[in-house]
């Protein structure tokens, strides 16, 4: 009795599920659970990390990221406007900046500002300035291209309408173009924020005082006292607490801005 194509697919799928269940059962039986628990889920170690993992490490990660993002956004906007300028040298400078900082590792920028500048110029930044400048300088290079694309995506008619009402070029940019551009690029900017959150860990390369620890450094430091993966798992989960909601927010915004142009009575109710 020959099976139809649909029936064959069904049998094949059931076989895969069965195999998966067998593998899981075998692994569960074979595993040494006390050892697994010690290595990954040591509750004593996890408990010892609280509350500092939240009050210091998570807080610092958020503060460092926010500083870097804020500075990067401003610098990125300036670079985007330079890139769109009618003055060629502005465009050249912006292009060189963007190509340079997108092409080198972020870690190198952290080293440059953390060690290079102090050694070369005798200029010592505090930790907040270092992380703000480093993250901002790198983030700006990526955000500049995003912002430029957003500005160019604003319909030409919007600009013509503003100019027709007597707004100058600059006022049109500030009142009409940039607000609309940011609406358009909110989803990619949120993704940029997620990347910066993770890149904020690079500050570990610079010596940090205990109260300056961010998540990665905190996890690493706890690890040196506790022979278990638990600390890494805990700080990893702390990153996810930031990045997963941001990812959802980004996708939500994407759906909303994407749906705005083809707005129907049904979609407005959602």
């Amino acid at each position: 009795m020959a099976l139809s194509k649909r029936q064959r697919a069904k049998v094949f799928r059931l076989a895969q599920y069965a195999l998966l269940v067998v593998v899981i059962v075998v692994l569960a039986l074979a595993a040494d659970w006390t050892e697994v628990k010690r290595a990954f889920f040591n509750l004593d170690i996890a408990a010892s990390m609280f509350p500092n993992v939240i009050t210091t490490a998570l807080k610092n990660t958020i503060v460092y990221t926010a500083l870097g993002f804020a500075f990067g956004l401003v610098l990125g906007l300036v670079l985007a406007l330079m890139k769109l300028s009618s003055v060629p040298p502005y465009r050249w400078i912006a292009t060189i900046y963007i190509e340079f900082f997108r092409g080198i590792p972020a870690l190198l920028v952290f080293i440059a500002l953390g060690f290079g500048v102090p050694l070369a110029f005798g200029l010592q930044f505090d930790i907040y300035s270092t992380v703000m400048l480093s993250l901002g300088i790198v983030g700006a290079a990526y955000m500049a291209e995003t912002i430029r694309a957003g500005i160019q995506a604003v319909p030409k008619g919007q600009i013509e309408a503003a100019r027709s009402l007597g707004m100058s070029h600059g006022r049109t940019l500030a009142t009409v173009v940039i607000p609309q551009a940011f609406r358009i690029i909110l989803p990619p900017l949120t993704n940029e924020l997620i990347l910066l959150t993770k890149d904020s860990s690079l500050i570990y390369i610079i010596g940090l005082a205990r109260e300056q620890y961010e998540l990665t450094k905190f996890g690493r430091e706890t690890l040196s006292r506790s022979p278990s993966l638990t600390p890494i798992l805990v700080v990893g989960l702390c990153y996810l607490v930031i990045t997963i909601p941001l990812g959802h927010l980004s996708r939500h915004l994407e759906r909303r801005t994407g749906g705005r142009k083809i707005r129907t009575p049904e979609s407005t109710g959602v």
Binding site: E160, A162, M167, V176, P179, R183
Partner: peptide, 30 residues
């Protein structure tokens, strides 16, 4: 241009502003 009102084929209302702000933004800023 303040003395010349322009109405476009594609309306070109400022899509990020409500009706009232569409009407007031240039009055206030210009």
């Amino acid at each position: 241009r303040v003395r010349i009102g322009m109405v476009f084929q594609g309306f070109n209302l400022f899509s990020h502003l409500n009706v009232l702000n569409n009407l007031t933004v240039a009055q206030r800023k210009v």
